[in-house]
Design a protein around this nucleic acid. Structure first.
Lengths: 233, 233
DNA sequence: TTTCCTAAATGAATGGCATTCATTTAGTGG
DNA sequence: CCACTAAATGAATGCCATTCATTTAGGAAA
């Protein structure tokens, strides 16, 4: 049957001849297409292109030219994918200043780097914040470096974790700020009923040429560093 | 037809006689069933019962005995519902110490209250953090009170907003910690490769009888309060 | 060499979700 | 009394994550 004739066929019960490009078939291939590293890389690519809204199991599978269900052979849930991404990002956080610089400078660099990395990935924060370290080796490695640095700086052992948690909490919260719209503090029609707030916003706007989120981060970070440092041995 | 016979009916093409309770019909009722206050209250009830996973437009409508589409006459999106809830919660944050207590004590009470309220509502944090204040009058009122308090305490005008943002960032981050599992820092099989971290975790566990999240919050908050306070006029 | 086992894929199906839209209706303001 | 409109309905759309029975390729065991 010529192609022209086929166009006019009104009923066909036989399976369509595969006009689509040769799909991989089921079954064990020479070497498996998927593994966690491949999935992580694809997820990062997808997030970079379409943001976290674009990160769906379906889109992820599509980008790997694979059925969505295939992902579940390597990952137990979408949350798992997020954990993989998170741990990958943790390795990008710069802890190199520990052991090279004084403790307070090392913390400063670490904190800025940490904030910068995760401000581009704020949807991960609710996941990280409650994630057992066991599930994220790179993250754990980061904690180890920071712990060693604080210990060497004379932080009392029993206050090391709390100090890290306090810093990290501040960092996570600040990561959200980075993504806030510029006019977030515009009181609009409520300006008259909030004179103190309105004046403070105005004053900040006139003052700073730096980004507000950076000013606040610097302010809080320096306060934390000196406050925590005061409690060393 | 008796009930027993009806059970055996195998085919019925006639519409089922409405055995369901009398549904409201379309059209303008004597007084409208829905408004934003009603929706907010229902959302809070639902969140209390089923958590944020249970807060869906469908479930919300169900709890109000209304069609899901009806909600969209009063709210433009699910995010809108979250904003309504958020602003309701902001009114629960205790700012009463401002004007009654010294500034540092007022900030302390405010911060603990703020953290406690939102630690039960962490899914709102990504929403709040980037929400223009215009859309949340109660939240704005809170900012006004805090701004006035800091101003009276001698904070330089241009640093008031940054100070609030820094505190708030820390509070939001800390709210997540409260919900973290108890064993979040258990290094598991990686203990040997992370000696400093493992020792620090161990030491904290032996020390504290307070909840770790509270210790870290207290530590960071006191550091922030004294650090920010040092910059007053 | 043949047979068996299993990892890794498929695709269909499930039951949800937020949101949109045309439609209906009951009060209200003119 | 009539026209208008706010506020409801229910059907439909196009997603989503996840599950499951099934298929098959390739290596291990016999």
């Amino acid at each position: 049957m010529p192609a022209a004739a086929r166009q006019n066929a009104t009923s066909r019960t036989d399976p369509l001849p595969a006009a689509t490009p040769p799909k991989r078939r089921a079954g064990r291939p020479a070497s498996a297409v998927l593994d966690q590293a491949v999935i992580t890389a694809a997820a990062l690519r997808l997030i970079g292109k379409s943001g976290y809204d674009g990160l769906t199991m379906a889109a992820l599978a599509r980008s790997l030219d694979v059925a969505p269900s295939a992902l579940y052979n390597h990952v137990t849930s979408k949350r798992d994918v997020l954990v993989l991404v998170e741990d990958h990002l943790a390795a990008l956080v710069d802890v190199s200043a520990f052991g090279r610089e004084p403790w307070n400078e090392a913390v400063r660099r670490w904190a800025w780097s940490y904030r910068d990395v995760f401000s581009k990935h704020t949807p991960l924060i609710p996941v990280i914040a409650v994630l057992p370290v066991t599930d994220a080796p790179q993250t754990l490695a980061m904690y180890e470096t920071v712990s060693a640095g604080l210990r060497k700086a004379g932080f009392p052992e029993e206050r090391i974790i709390s100090s890290i948690v306090a810093l990290e909490s501040f960092i996570f919260g600040s990561a959200f700020d980075v993504t806030a719209p510029a006019d977030i503090f515009d009181p609009g029609s409520m300006a008259e009923s909030t004179p103190n707030f309105t004046a403070a916003v105005q004053s900040l706007a006139e003052q700073g040429h730096e980004k507000p989120a950076d000013i606040a981060f610097s302010l809080g970070l320096e306060a934390l560093i000196s406050g925590l440092g005061a409690l060393r041995n």
